[in-house]
Computed example of a mutant assay.
Amino acid sequence: SHEVNIDERQMKWFETVLRMHPAHKGWKIFVTTHAPPLGSGLRTLQENHVVNGCCWLNHSDEAQSKRFIELVRKHRCVKAWFSGHFHLGQDYQDSITFPNNEDGPDPNRGSCVFVQTSVMRQGTSRDGRRQSRLLRGHSNGFDICTVEHDNGGNVRVDASVTYSDDEEEVGVYQHGDIHGADKTLFKVYTPQAGDQHHAPDEYFVPANAKGEIQMKE
């Protein structure tokens, strides 16, 4: 497993691009990175990438890892963010997350749709799927599609996004989890202090068998 790191020079460039292309002037920016940013809400591999600290961009640096979602919230010109990294298929509904979802630990996703992208080459997928993304733009939004390489290149529409105005957009899923999508191995997960995927710090106080936490004076 490998961490994807964006250095300060790249961050400054990205911030400048967003600042120079504001939403109120009609700019719509689509971002592609290898790994997703923290706060995207996309399906993750908790037994691999989360525990190894390489799940999100700049994962091992807490302050730096939060900068990406903070920029998305500030600059509503960012309309979609595509990433891969997990080698998972696109048959899961949470391979796409919409803006301002009220669920989860990071409900504010600005005006951005986050999209997970699978792999095309045989033998490189963790769940056996060979798929890629196709983006179809139209006058008031865009459709996010899947190209199924094991099904003759069939194109499936997964979600449709419509611009409400320059700073808002509405997304609609075109289907739920596709039949056969593995619901046991992969899920969105946020590490919590003291659980098996997050080592407790020196101030962590575990609960007793009754679920009570006793603090020492």
Rank of each mutant, 00 (worst) to 15 (best):
D195L: 00
T184L: 12
A181C: 11
Y173D: 02
L135T: 10
F204M: 02
L135Y: 12
Y173T: 04
P200K: 03
L185S: 12
H138P: 01
H149I: 06
C145L: 05
E148M: 08
E168P: 07
Q192W: 15
G171Q: 00
E167Y: 08
D158M: 06
L135D: 03
G137M: 15
Q174D: 11
F142D: 04
N151S: 10
N151P: 02
D166P: 07
P200D: 01
Q174N: 13
G180N: 04
I144D: 05
G152T: 01
F142P: 00
G176K: 12
Q196K: 14
D158P: 06
E202C: 13
G152R: 00
S164P: 00
K187S: 12
G180C: 00
A199S: 13
V188C: 11
D177V: 04
A159W: 05
G176L: 15
D150A: 04
V205Y: 06
Y189P: 00
V170A: 11
D182N: 15
H149K: 06
D150H: 03
V155D: 03
H197V: 00
H149V: 09
P200Y: 03
T184S: 13
D177P: 05
L185I: 06
G153L: 02
D143W: 10
T162N: 09
G153N: 04
H198R: 14
T190H: 13
H149F: 11
G171V: 02
D158I: 08
D182Y: 07
K187H: 13
I144V: 10
V205E: 10
L135Q: 09
T184C: 06
H149E: 04
V188A: 11
G176F: 15
F186M: 07
D182E: 05
N154T: 09
A181P: 10
Y163K: 04
K183P: 08
D158V: 10
T146I: 13
T146C: 12
G137S: 11
D166Q: 08
S160K: 07
E169G: 10
D201Q: 07
T146Q: 09
E202A: 13
R156W: 15
N140Y: 07
S164D: 12
Y163M: 03
H149Y: 01
L135E: 10
F204E: 01
P191M: 08
D166N: 13
A181W: 11
D182A: 07
D158F: 01
T190Y: 15
L185Q: 09
V161G: 00
V161L: 00
D201M: 01
Y163C: 00
D158R: 14
G152F: 02
C145T: 10
K187N: 11
N140S: 09
A181Y: 12
I144E: 04
H198P: 04
G171K: 03
T184Y: 15
N140A: 11
A159S: 03
R136G: 02
G171Y: 01
D165A: 01
G137R: 09
Y173R: 03
L185R: 14
N151Y: 05
A193I: 13
P200C: 01
Q196P: 08
I144L: 02
D143A: 11
E202I: 15
G153V: 00
H175M: 13
Q196H: 12
